[in-house]
Amino acid sequence: MIYAGVDVGSLTAKAVLLRDGRVAAWHVEPVSATPGESARRVLEAALEKAQARRDDLTRVCATGYGRHEMTFADLERSEISCHGLGTFTSNPVVRSVIDIGGQDCKVVVLDDAGLVDDFAMNDKCAAGTGRTLELLARTLGVSLGELGPRALRARRALPVSNKCSIFMELDVMQWMHQGRRAEDIARGITASVARRVAALAGKVTLRPGVCISGGVSKNAAVVRELELALGVRFVPLAHDPQIMGALGAACFARLEHERAREHDRRVLRASDPVSSVDAAATPDCAGCTGGAP
């Protein structure tokens, strides 16, 4: 049985196939045309990698900004739930997730089953997101990938303190005009983003077992600053942090299928007591057993 999760964000689309409780294949590509179209393409690509066909899919769950446009999906879940269950599946000790995506930043606290217990999400302001890092890196004249390594070589953090990400650019420019070291400015940028995220994390009560996901988790400098700001060390994840949403969606597809089957069984049991014998069948996914109600 194969379960699929498709996550279409504002910039990239991701698909994950789950077979026998393992990630059978995944695929990421930039969003193109419409979300529905992107979802279809990314799902096809993942199916190809797994050498499977569309008909093999038991259930498909959609998530991300484009979730409402995926007409072929059987169910949809919010990114917050999906990121939670995805990271939990990737590492079962996870109880708190810090996800820094392109446009938003979420902090999700999970219960022992990997489901959302509490969450916080940045509102009105985008300072403290991946896009901010990207904009500021561009201002500084380095690539996003280079920002982290630069920051790690810094001697000190030059404050980039303005609250608005567009005006943080002015802070950066000011330092540049003064001829300050790019490394120190880079450190200022990463530290400032990390502080924003830490402030957001303060709105919920984190549970031990904190991990970081989303595109920004690949930026070692921000990750380091965040660990300092939160006073924790992040637990590792078994999969690419970018696909957590899609992975979570796939797990929800599986959960939903099992719930439906359980429901059928109960109905069946009520009408025919004999068939209850196979009701004890083990779930087919070892990774996220906790998800069962």
Binding site: S10, V31, G66, E69, Q103, K124
Partner: peptide, 15 residues
């Protein structure tokens, strides 16, 4: 907010 407006634009394009 310019950054959010950007994501609004992207989602509009997609629609």
């Amino acid at each position: 907010c310019a950054v959010f407006a950007e994501s609004e634009v992207i989602s509009r394009v997609n629609l």
